[in-house]
Design a protein around this nucleic acid. Structure first.
Length: 350
DNA sequence: CGTTTTTGACCCGCGC
DNA sequence: GCGCGGGTCAAAAACG
């Protein structure tokens, strides 16, 4: 998990490029890796005699710095609130599990139809897989956590329908909600793993097709993933993970692979809006790996580690960076200033 | 040429 | 028993 964040190039965007140091002390500890050139730009700008253009740029940068600082403050506040809410939720869930044995009243819309890995003839004859502990597997990961593979089949023997057993013996199920560009038809959710699509189906309750993926990083990996747009909100991709990876997360190549997959998918998809022109914030926000999913998964109440708020901050910082870098005028101004400065410096070396 | 995606067909469980 | 719906298979196509 964590290693991924550090390796994300987008996270390396320096929000403070060319910024005067104002507001620095307000900002939370640098959540993104600072880039060297920044210092260079900063130092070179200051002694410049102030062209009107440079002055304008500086004021613009100051304005953005201010805005950045405000956003950071808002971000900190949101993160604090999220922490509080999350701990409240955790307590509530724990209390509910302790008192009612883990029956979850809500979220009935999901998971229920998830079936054990393979139900072909041979296997159905084989044996009913060991049934984990009773209790709904609804909320993300929770089911697996609660339903340890201890294998108590008392439900079946005690007269409960074996169907329930089947439901409960399903592997670790987690659900992730990813914000996605509605114009992007691809059902690709980047989560750091390598997936191979093996099926697509239109389900009854949702006009949007559901895509079925299998982990292709390790042939023996039992993990499956279903991705479908939310019926309620077209911009939400719901990714349902079943099972646990029996291998580590693929290192750097995995990211490349995803990009390749993404590109291929996007390329193979008929009408893809001109995303290549500029990375939309949505496009940046969607297709984020697992960690980000967890942030975006707040609604689902996934029991994330204490680093969740930190991740939220990173995500928002990234989005802010995206916003800045997406701004053509900002980029143009920056490029102009930089190139001008470079040109100005280079001949004097001689 | 190997890998991945697409897509129609098939299998299986479930409700009636 | 039958029909429906979800999940999977596997051949063909697409892609790098």
């Amino acid at each position: 998990m964590d290693p991924w964040i550090g390796t994300q190039p987008s996270l390396s965007l320096d929000l403070h490029v060319g910024l005067p140091s104002l507001g620095r002390h307000h900002a939370p500890p640098p959540v993104v890796a600072m880039v060297k050139p920044k210092t260079l730009v900063e130092e070179n700008f200051l002694p410049l005699k102030k062209d009107p253009e440079v002055a304008a740029l500086e004021s613009e940068l100051q304005r953005m710095g201010e805005e950045n600082r405000r956003l950071n403050e808002a971000l900190t506040a949101v993160a604090a609130k999220y922490d509080a809410l999350r701990s409240q939720y955790t307590e509530m869930v724990a209390a509910a599990n302790n008192t009612s044995g883990g029956n979850n009243p809500s979220s009935g819309s999901e998971g229920g139809s998830v079936s054990p890995s393979r139900k072909r003839k041979s296997e159905s004859l084989d044996t009913a897989p060991t049934a984990p502990a009773p209790g709904h597997l609804h909320h993300n990961h929770q089911g697996a956590a609660a339903a340890s593979p201890g294998g108590d089949q008392m439900e079946c023997t005690s007269g409960e329908p074996c169907k329930r057993i089947r439901e409960e013996c399903k592997p670790k199920v987690s659900k992730l909600y990813v914000h996605a560009d509605p114009a992007d038809l691809s059902l690709v959710v980047k989560d750091g793993y390598q997936w191979r699509k093996y099926g697509q189906k239109v389900t009854k309750d949702n006009p949007c097709p559901r895509a079925y993926f299998r982990c292709s990083f390790a042939p023996s990996c039992p993990v499956k993933k279903k991705v479908q747009r939310s019926a309620d909100d077209n911009t939400i991709l719901v990714a349902t993970y079943e099972g646990e990876h029996n291998h580590g997360q693929p290192p750097a190549p995995a990211t490349a692979q995803q990009q390749q997959n993404d590109g291929k998918t996007a390329a193979s998809k008929p009408p893809s809006p001109p995303r290549q022109a500029a990375p939309l914030p949505v496009a940046a926000a969607h297709q984020q790996p697992h960690h980000l999913h967890q942030q975006q998964n707040v609604l689902a109440g996934e029991p994330v580690a204490a680093a969740a708020s930190e991740m939220i901050r990173r995500n928002l910082a990234e989005q802010m960076a995206m916003t800045l870098t997406r701004d053509p005028s900002f980029k143009a101004a920056l490029v102009t200033a930089l190139s001008g400065r470079i040109l100005e410096l280079s001949p004097t070396k001689d």
